[in-house]
């Protein structure tokens, strides 16, 4: 089985945070999940980036919380199942 080309991985990683500027947060979440399975830090970064862009005073930092949640989920998944292609 072929290894996923780096270009795809880079696109996946960039798409999640950049989509915050184009699409609703729900779509960003969908894009973040696969990216986070490759690099969990992406989820954390995307959440914080969403708050930097759109945080409103008096609101909770929900985007960062969700980002942290996805980060821990991705770390957990990677911890349990580390798939290797041989």
């Amino acid at each position: 089985m072929k290894k996923i080309p780096n270009a795809y991985v880079v696109t996946l990683i960039l798409l999640a945070p950049i989509s915050l500027l184009f699409f609703p947060p729900s779509l960003t979440l969908i894009l973040t999940l696969p990216a986070a399975l490759v690099y969990p830090q992406i989820a954390l970064f995307t959440g914080i980036f969403a708050d930097i862009l759109y945080y409103a005073p008096k609101a909770n930092l929900e985007a960062s919380y969700v980002g942290a949640l996805v980060y821990f989920f991705a770390v957990f998944v990677r911890y349990i199942f580390k798939t290797r292609i041989m």
């Binding site: 500027l21 699409f23 609703p24 947060p25 969403a50 862009l53 759109y54 945080y55 409103a56 985007a63």
Partner: peptide, 11 residues
């Protein structure tokens, strides 16, 4: 410049 649904938190 930006409005919901793109902006989270209704800003």
């Amino acid at each position: 410049l930006v409005r919901p649904p793109v902006s989270a938190y209704d800003t």
